[in-house]
């Protein structure tokens, strides 16, 4: 495992009393990459994230963030990370600007460009409003902005778009991609496979505290998914629908035959989704 990876977890485990939440998992995230950490509720995603950001001390194993042991050099590592949790954790009696300035002060930042940061998440017009008046999506966008006050090199996002309206979700996804473009490493927990597929360079499937698969979305689809061609055509005035596996060599000839002899209505290829692969690998649905 590369020791220079911004996020490095080696054999980390955590139990809540007798409940084993994370079972000696290892992984790393390379610089400037987004890792989609995927799993259903209760799979161990948030426990892993809590260990990575220094909120929980792993009961075994080791975590290094930007080369620094998160347990031994917690403050040093935390000064270079940003974290956004799923649950809203804002000072609601304060304005958005005051929230950001306060958190910036904890990092020793005095010249925070609040307007620019809020503009990035589409909240510049609401900067002076009390957060208690914000919608759920606005609060989540503010939490993402808060995670960026210290210009982190590593960003941890826990279900950042869960339950949000499309506008807020898209705004957050845009920020994640902007950060990636800057070279920021992103650890993203989600159970939204579409989102993970869109954003992630690598994905890890976690189920019952174990990593069931770790690869790029393309490789996973290639390895576990079946690509098929769906074709609809008329034969003797009757609509026929066929699914032909692309890996099947016989399918090519059959397709040629259909195209030559019949009136084709439409045809398109269909790939397995990450969700299909997750179910295939773990036997569980992502809910």
């Amino acid at each position: 495992m590369p020791s220079e990876a911004p996020i490095l977890a080696e054999e980390i485990a955590y139990s809540y009393n007798k409940l084993l939440a994370v079972d000696r998992i290892s992984f790393h995230v390379d610089a400037g990459e987004i890792l989609g950490f995927l799993g259903p509720n209760g799979a161990g995603k948030t426990t892993t994230l809590k260990m990575l950001v220094g909120l929980l001390v792993p009961q075994s194993g080791r975590i290094a963030i930007l080369g620094k042991d998160i347990v031994k050099n917690r403050a040093e590592a935390q000064s270079q990370i940003g974290a956004c949790f799923e649950e809203k954790s804002l000072y609601e009696d304060m304005s958005a600007a005051a929230n950001l300035k306060f958190f910036a002060s904890l990092f020793g930042i005095r010249d925070l460009d609040v307007a620019r940061l809020l503009d990035r998440v589409g909240l510049s017009g609401d900067r002076k409003d009390r957060v208690s008046n914000y919608s759920k999506g606005m609060k989540q966008r503010l939490m993402v902005a808060r995670a960026l006050v210290n210009q982190p090199k590593v960003l941890f996002l826990d279900e950042p778009t869960d339950g949000l309206d499309p506008v807020s979700s898209e705004a957050i996804r845009a920020v994640i991609l902007e950060e990636k473009a800057k070279g920021v490493t992103v650890f993203l927990t989600t159970h939204d496979m579409m989102e993970a597929d869109k954003l992630s360079d690598h994905v890890a499937f976690i189920s019952e505290g174990e990593i069931a698969a770790f690869d790029t979305p393309e490789n996973l689809k290639h390895q576990y998914g079946k690509r098929i061609l769906k074709i609809r055509y008329y034969r003797d005035r009757k609509l026929i629908e066929e699914e032909l596996p692309l890996e099947d060599k016989q399918a090519g000839r059959h397709i040629e035959e259909i195209l030559g002899d019949y009136d084709v209505l439409d045809m398109h290829t269909e790939e397995a989704t990450l969700e299909d692969i997750f179910i295939q690998l773990t036997g569980k649905k992502l809910e």
Binding site: V53, L55, Q78, F85, K88, F107, N150
Partner: peptide
């Protein structure tokens, strides 16, 4: 109650 303690503890604040 606000769950802001977690947010504080992921900064260098102890």
């Amino acid at each position: 109650e606000k769950r802001t303690l977690a947010a504080l503890l992921v900064t260098p604040t102890t």
